[in-house]
Amino acid sequence: MAIEHGMWRIGSAPFKLQPVRIENESLLEELITKDISILNDGWLLIGRQVRTGFDKFIDLLAVDADGSLIIIELKRHRTPRDVVAQAIDYASWIEGLTDSKVIEIYESFRTQHGAGELSLDQAFEKRFGLRLGDVELNSSHQIVVVAAELDASTERIINYLNDKAVPVNAVFFKVFEDEGRQYLSRAWMIDPGQTQERAAVASAKEPWNSEYYVSFGDSERRNWEDARQWGFISAGGGRWYSNTLGMLNEGDRIWVNIPKTGYVGVGIVTGPVVRADEFLVPVDGTEKPLPEASTRAKYRSKPENESEDTAEYVVPVQWTHTVPAGKAYAETGLFGNQNSVCKPRTEKWGHTIERLKKAWSVG
């Protein structure tokens, strides 16, 4: 279904802003290079105008917390269908890249485009809180087409490929002008979380074992001791962080990891995801919303004049076994991921659970 952008200025009466043409799509590429969150705040940009083995150039190349590589192609003056075909051709080359080649691409990007002094290992850990060696780099890949619009035929092609577990997506940008100021608007054709999930499924080396991984970002926004005391996990600060909590259902078993610290708990989900101010905890014989309790962290309810996306979201859990962060279980070779919740399909996940079961005497 075609996606139409619209933007209105709010006043005594709504005033519709007029879209303006991006005369040079290199400007859009430059904006994305400066801030990849324009596309997705869960990505790290690692390449620009990457020369392939058949002497063509990938516009932009990124990596996510899973180690999945994302091919980003701008439409420019090509037909949308040509862009999709070209991106699939690039994916056939990306699939065969070794870790050393990916590092070489990043080093070229870093030196040519002023991406800082950090190595790929350092940049990955700074961005995702995980060591690059803890993920399988280039175990999967995604394709993203950037365009102002797509024709119906191209939309059908993208939907067909997704139905066949080929992770292709499209993102639409428009520029609106209001009294000399310009605003960039973005809309995805498919939820990018779904594309990420398809990439993981397509690259799976073994079936999912029905055990969920949880990344708990222990910080001023949430505290592991609070979670242990009142029985919950939480995430927030943006849709990319909180949306995956919706994957969990009552009865699911979760294994909780604090990035850069280690595994700290296993438990059973007891209810659906709710906003933090809708999660009640017992305090002196009564029940209070989590943000009103004497917690160690500050849990954001829906901030005034902000989107609900920025709030903290909570999933109730009955803990089977937990340990303080200072006694977290960590060793080389355990599974790690920055997604708040995911369904790992790697041998490393099975190995991780077996090690935790033995360490914590959990069946």
Rank of each mutant, 00 (worst) to 15 (best):
V283L: 07
D89F: 09
W93F: 10
A330V: 10
L45R: 06
R228I: 13
L118N: 12
K174T: 07
L161S: 03
G217Q: 14
T244W: 15
N138W: 05
S340L: 13
A276C: 03
L120Y: 12
D163N: 04
I94N: 00
A187W: 06
N305S: 13
G238P: 00
A147P: 02
R21T: 11
T154L: 04
V171S: 03
F335P: 00
V266I: 10
R253L: 12
G11I: 14
G6R: 05
N162G: 06
G42Y: 07
Q194E: 11
W255D: 01
G237A: 13
E104H: 14
R78G: 08
G6A: 07
S185W: 05
M189G: 03
S294I: 12
E197A: 11
V283C: 09
R345Y: 12
K288L: 14
Q142H: 12
L184H: 12
Q49E: 13
E292M: 01
H5L: 07
E206H: 15
P272V: 15
R127C: 01
K205D: 05
A13T: 14
K174P: 00
A199P: 05
A65L: 01
Q194F: 08
R239N: 10
V146G: 00
P14H: 12
Q318V: 12
A235P: 09
L17S: 03
G262A: 09
I157T: 13
R228H: 10
E354D: 14
T270P: 00
N305H: 11
R76Q: 09
A62D: 02
Y263M: 07
S234I: 03
I258M: 01
S210G: 09
S215L: 09
A165V: 13
L184W: 14
Q86K: 06
G251R: 10
D99I: 13
E177I: 10
L248F: 06
E136L: 10
S37N: 12
E292L: 06
V135C: 04
P259S: 15
L74A: 11
M189H: 09
M247V: 05
G67Y: 10
E220W: 14
R78P: 01
I32H: 03
E347Y: 15
